[in-house]
Nucleic acid binder design. Structure first.
Length: 559
RNA sequence: UGCCUGAUAGUAUAAUGGUAGUACGACGGUUUUUGGUACCGUUUGUCUAGGUUCGAAUCCUGGUCGGGCAACCA
């Protein structure tokens, strides 16, 4: 039943640990975001990995906010992160905060001071940087490195008590200033920051650095497998050093390659810039690679989980093609989205032999992929219809299965029509297409014996509802904007958003539900935007349908 | 120039000394009242040079190329 997928390297490690009886076979992972921005698709990879690993081996996962830098962190971000993780379909065992451990962390620091393994340094940031040396030259110790335990204890207590201004002193681990690993050259453990913290308020004016908070938090929670991205590999010796010298629970850090997606940026700093400088409409702009952006775009949690499953877990740098993400959402929506008709770029068709004033209701199933079509609805049909402008050509090429004078198509779920003539305005724009219909060709009751290659969508003119439709394309013109010369914002795609103010949609779409995906037949998948109202409906295009037609040079842009 | 990492079709990811496989893409076909879906087929790969071995993507050595490391960020 369940496909035997080969294990990724982390699953192998976990299985080995379980087999070896490590931690009594327990598996506890954690997802540790810093609440300084919204979660993106890269975080989704980490979330699926951490929660998935625990689920697979009967363990649990903590959600822990790495909130050790109050100047960047906000409650808004905490809330959005919780919402996104939940939306993705994961339940954490405990909601925790590094700031919950500030007291314990302080005690840990005191313990290291007492062991002679930490000292207070009065140097400035520049001095410390200079004294650290370079990758090829060792660092040089300063006079503070030999302070007595008693003096360090007192100074550190005074730092905590608020006696010193920001930057006046730091607490450093006393390790090895000549280490080839820069992270081991007496790394900072605490800095002074008289800043309000979103949870601890003004209780603290010293805050632990990442390296002195993360592994320690893992140990406090007894995390068995602490999974992070590759850039932390050089931190691992330090992670282990603190745990060993503090003699606390031996959590282990493992690293995997972060997700890179082409035609977008993934760093929170850059995403924040796009938001603050108004290149996009907030963190949840449908063009953003954020979870909230993807949600607003119409992506489903299942499609994102599937994507994370398909990209795999390894240790080599990678660049995933967005087309894989698009494949995943199409695959999901194809099975679930109700089919509806919408004419994005309308042109009027008049069926000259259809009685004026007559209306027929045409039945059409909701989803041909589903059992029994998943029900259906009636679509009003009349003498005048809106059809897609691109479904008519004055001079159609040979394999154009749509309309042109003399050509026949089926109107989806209705009749076969033959194009007789068309009309133009003074500027040469086609304004109207005149057709005759075949009365015997009514859908589901076709006795005409006529077979046509093309079927097109339509909306009855007197019954059409007007809506706004937003078409999205990739946010950047180049595959890897961060790697180009100059500022990444120079590579923003100016056509990433196209707003169609007046689109005609079939009447049943008045019942469209937020959060549900609809397939506008032959045009793509769409979902209601959060700002849609009863009076002015707004749909976002999630993704186009795969377009296999190579008949013209002009290909509609994917998005 | 130091240290740490990694390298398998276009993109990802398996093969754990024994037939280089899978997915997406691309290309072609069948079906189709969506030029969608589904189904079938084709295509393309072990960074390089040596070595060990009956046998190497896998082990060893040298090289090449990519990524990371010198924030009071995480």
């Amino acid at each position: 039943m369940s496909e035997e997928r080969s294990l990724n390297f982390l699953e192998e490690i976990v299985e080995e640990d379980i087999a070896a009886g490590k931690n009594g076979g327990k598996v506890l992972t954690r997802f540790p975001p810093e609440p300084n921005g919204y979660l993106h698709i890269g975080h989704a990879k980490s979330i699926c990995l951490n929660f998935g690993l625990a689920q697979r081996y009967g363990g649990q996962t903590n959600l822990r906010f790495d909130d050790t830098n109050p100047s960047k962190e906000e409650v808004e971000y905490v809330d959005s992160i919780k919402e996104d993780v939940k939306w993705l379909g994961f339940n954490w065992a405990n909601e925790l905060y590094a700031s919950d451990y500030f007291d314990k962390l302080y005690d840990f620091a005191v313990k290291l001071i007492k062991k002679g393994l930490a000292y207070v340094d009065d140097s400035t940031a520049d001095e410390i940087a200079a004294q650290k040396g370079t990758p090829t030259e060792p660092g040089t110790p300063n006079q503070y490195r030999n302070r007595s335990v008693e003096e360090n204890l007192q100074l550190f207590a005074e730092m905590k008590a608020g006696k010193y201004p920001d930057g006046a002193k730091v607490l450093r681990a006393k390790i090895d200033l000549a280490s080839p690993n820069m992270h081991m050259r007496d790394p900072l453990m605490y800095r002074i920051k008289h800043t309000h913290h979103h949870r601890t308020g003004n209780d603290w004016c010293i805050y632990p650095m990442y390296d002195f908070a993360h592994g320690e938090s893992d140990a406090i929670e007894e995390i068995t497998h602490s999974v992070c991205t590759l850039e932390f590999v050089p931190h691992r010796p330090l992670y282990d050093w603190f745990i060993e010298n503090l003699e606390i629970f031996p959590s282990k850090q493992y690293e995997f390659a972060r997700l890179n997606l082409n035609y977008t940026v993934m760093s929170k700093r850059k995403l924040l810039q796009l938001v603050e400088e108004k290149y996009v409409d907030g963190w949840d702009d449908p063009r953003m690679p954020t979870i909230s952006g993807l949600r607003r775009r119409g992506y489903t949690p299942a499609s994102i989980r599937e994507f994370c499953e398909r990209i795999g877990i390894a240790k080599r740098e990678n660049m995933i093609d967005v087309s894989l993400l698009e494949f995943c959402i199409r695959e999901d929506l194809n099975k679930t989205a109700w089919r509806r008709m919408a004419v994005l770029d309308p042109i009027k068709m008049v069926i000259t032999n259809y009685p004026e004033g007559q209306v027929e209701n045409m039945f059409s199933e909701n989803n041909p992929e589903a059992e029994g079509g998943d029900g259906g609805r009636e679509i009003p049909f009349s003498r005048e219809l809106w059809i897609e402008r691109e479904d008519f050509m004055e001079d159609p090429p040979k394999k154009f299965f749509r309309l042109g004078v003399g050509l026949m198509v089926r109107l989806k779920s209705a009749y076969i029509v033959k194009c007789d003539s068309f009309e133009k305005d003074a500027d040469g724009n086609v304004t109207q297409i005149n057709c005759t219909y075949i009365p015997e060709s009514r859908s589901q009751n076709d006795t005409s014996g006529i077979h046509v290659k093309g079927t097109i969508h339509w909306v009855s003119v007197p019954h059409a509802i007007t809506a706004e439709v937003r078409l999205y394309d990739r946010l950047f013109k180049v595959e890897d904007p961060s790697n180009e010369d100059g500022d990444f914002k120079e590579y923003i795609n100016p056509d990433s958003l196209q707003v169609l103010e007046k689109v005609y949609i079939e009447p049943d779409l008045a019942n469209a539900v937020p959060g549900k995906g609809y397939q506008f037949m032959r045009k793509g998948y769409f979902t209601l935007d959060k700002n849609s109202t009863r009076d002015k409906m707004v749909f976002n295009r999630t993704v186009t349908l795969k377009d296999g037609w190579k008949g013209t040079a002009q290909q509609p842009s994917k998005g």
